[in-house]
């Protein structure tokens, strides 16, 4: 595929999936964020802090207004990564249907880049994170993300060189990747912040937000596969043989 259609397919699919994610989050994740911020504000008032509720309300409008734009930026940045991986791996993915291949790759990337890191460092609503530990927590999160992503990439490169059946290759890949993740999970420090709000709220937030991110990846894969099929036809060189 040439540069322009390739970029178009990649960025448009990310923007579509990101827009849907933002809209869905406004409906299903925002109530949990509102509730957490409400609890945080109540705790601050109880602790004797001076809280400007009008300023807080203004902040919330600003924060909510960025949900869809944030979703689009998030979608485009992850679809950029997805596009690169798909461009290099599409011939190695099983099957002949490009759409199915794209959905399969999106599922794998969702597992490696979201679900696995979330097992060690799950998402938290506002009122949980301590501003003083933000850079430390970001470092831990990125480290685990890189370990998961690099391991998946390394294992994929390794099994390509092994002369085995597909099922054995998959078994070897899963075993090595699983072993690396288990060791990393046990070796890496936990999130240092204590959770001082209701665990029911935190768990519900984690579950709902994870569901929307999984949905995002599946929409990204399906949209990407559909657009790839549509635009790639232009790049098929017709050869007539007699």
């Amino acid at each position: 595929m040439r540069s322009l259609p390739f970029l178009l397919v990649t960025l448009v699919s990310g923007a579509v999936a990101g827009t849907i994610l933002g809209i869905v989050n406004l409906g299903v994740v925002e109530p949990y964020i509102d509730k957490a911020i409400q609890l945080e504000t109540q705790n601050e008032i109880r602790a004797g802090e001076n809280v400007n509720t009008d300023e807080m309300a203004g902040y919330r409008i600003w924060q909510k207004s960025g949900e869809i734009v944030g979703g689009i930026v998030y979608g485009i940045s992850l679809s950029s990564l997805f596009g690169i991986v798909f461009a290099y791996s599409r011939n190695s993915l099983p099957g002949n249907n490009v759409k199915v291949k794209a959905i399969l790759l999106a599922s794998i990337m969702c597992f490696v880049l979201f679900i696995v890191p979330s097992l060690k460092y799950p998402s938290n609503p506002p009122a949980v994170g301590d501003p003083d530990t933000i850079y430390y927590r970001q470092s831990l999160f990125v480290a685990f993300l890189v370990i998961s992503g690099a391991s998946a990439l390394g294992v994929t490169a390794l099994i390509k060189k092994i002369n085995q059946t597909v099922s054995k290759k998959v078994a070897i890949a899963c075993t090595i990747y699983g072993a690396i993740i288990i060791v990393s999970y046990l070796a890496m420090p936990s999130n240092p912040d204590k959770i001082s709000i209701s665990m029911n709220l935190v768990e519900a937030f984690r579950l709902v937000s994870a569901a929307t991110i999984v949905m995002f990846w599946e929409i990204l894969g399906a949209t990407y596969g559909t657009l790839w099929n549509r635009f790639n036809r232009q790049n098929l060189k017709k050869v007539t043989a007699f």
């Binding site: 964020i33 994170g129 301590d130 970001q138």
Partner: peptide, 16 residues
């Protein structure tokens, strides 16, 4: 940061 605050939380990134 504040503009993308809610998406940051929802996407699982560390936040304050």
């Amino acid at each position: 940061h504040e503009f993308v605050h809610d998406m940051r939380h929802a996407a699982g990134f560390p936040c304050h």
